[in-house]
C-alpha cells in the first residue's frame, strides 16, 4: 500500500477527532455549569491529543518537511475527510450530547478493531484511545439518559437532536477507496461491519433514555469525500485563521 493511501486513511479517522475536538472547545467557558464545562473540555483534549498522534504519524509518512500543523490547518475544505456528523454545530446541549454519543459509540467500536492493525503505530494510538473513548461513551450515554428521561423539556430537546442528527449516522459505515485499500492490506478495518453492533448499542441507550429511534431511511453523506455541510467553512475559518493570515511563521 502506498504511503499516500495510508495518509488518506489516517485523515479519514483523525479529521473526525480534530473537528469534534474543535466543536467541543467552542464550549469551553459556556457549559451549563462548571463541572460539566470541565468534563467537556477533557473530552476535547483527549480528541485533540489523538489528532496530534495521527497527524504526526501522517506527517512522518509523507516524508517531506510536513508537520502536524500543516495537516491540521493548511488543507482546503475538500481535503478534510471527517464525517458530516462531527461538524454539526452546538445548537444546544442536547445536540452536543447526542452528537457526542452518536460518535462515541462508533469511535469505540472503530478503535477496538483498529488496535489489531498490522501497523504498529496505528495499533498503539488505538490502544491508548480506547481508554479515553470508553469514558467518553460512558459520559455521553449517561447524559443521553438524563436528558431523555429527565424533564419534559429536556426530553423534547434530546428527541429533537436525535431526530436531526440521525441522518448523519449511516455515513460512519461507508467504505471509501482508501478504506478498502487499508483493509485489504491489514492496516485498516472494515467499518461497514460495525454497523449492526452500533445500532444495537445506540438502540439500547435510546430506549433506556425513553427516546424514539427516527424512522427515516434517508441519510446524508459526503464528508468522507470532502463534500461538507455549509457549517464546515465557518469552522475552518476559525481553525485556520492564524495560519492563513500569517503564513510560514512559528508559534
Amino acid at each position: 500500500m502506498k504511503n499516500e493511501n495510508i495518509i488518506q486513511y489516517i485523515y479519514g479517522i483523525a479529521d473526525n477527532a480534530l473537528i469534534l475536538g474543535q466543536r467541543l472547545s467552542e464550549l469551553c467557558g459556556h457549559g451549563p455549569n462548571l463541572e460539566t464545562d470541565i468534563a467537556l473540555t477533557n473530552m476535547a483534549l483527549d480528541l485533540l491529543g489523538q489528532t496530534r498522534s495521527y497527524y504526526q504519524y501522517a506527517a512522518q509518512l509523507s516524508g517531506d518537511e510536513k508537520t502536524e500543523d500543516d495537516i491540521a490547518f493548511l488543507r482546503i475544505e475538500r481535503q478534510y475527510k471527517n464525517v458530516l456528523l462531527v461538524e454539526q454545530p452546538n445548537r444546544h446541549f442536547g445536540y452536543v450530547i447526542t452528537r457526542q454519543f452518536f460518535y462515541d459509540v462508533f469511535h469505540l467500536l472503530l478503535l477496538q478493531e483498529l488496535q489489531n492493525s498490522n501497523d504498529d503505530t496505528l495499533s498503539a494510538i488505538a490502544k491508548k484511545g480506547i481508554k479515553e473513548v470508553s469514558y467518553h461513551q460512558r459520559f455521553s450515554s449517561d447524559w443521553m439518559k438524563r436528558l431523555g428521561d429527565g424533564t419534559e423539556e429536556s426530553h423534547q430537546k434530546a428527541q429533537e437532536a436525535v431526530d436531526d442528527l440521525w441522518k448523519f449516522t449511516d455515513e460512519l459505515f461507508h467504505m471509501t477507496k482508501d478504506d478498502e485499500l487499508a483493509f485489504e492490506s491489514g492496516i485498516g478495518i472494515d467499518v461497514s461491519k460495525l454497523k449492526e453492533h452500533y445500532y444495537k448499542r445506540i438502540g439500547e441507550v435510546l430506549e433506556e433514555a425513553t427516546l424514539t429511534i427516527p424512522e427515516t431511511k434517508w441519510f446524508q453523506k459526503g464528508g468522507k469525500q470532502g463534500i461538507h455541510s455549509e457549517h464546515m467553512g465557518y469552522l475552518l475559518s476559525d481553525l485556520q485563521y492564524m495560519q492563513r493570515t500569517y503564513p510560514n511563521m512559528k508559534w
Binding site: 463541572e35 468534563a39 460512558r138
Partner: peptide, 11 residues
C-alpha cells in the same frame, strides 16, 4: 452519585 464520581474524576 454516578455524576459525582464522573465530575470528581474530571475535576
Amino acid at each position: 452519585a454516578e455524576m459525582a464520581l464522573e465530575n470528581a474524576r474530571d475535576v
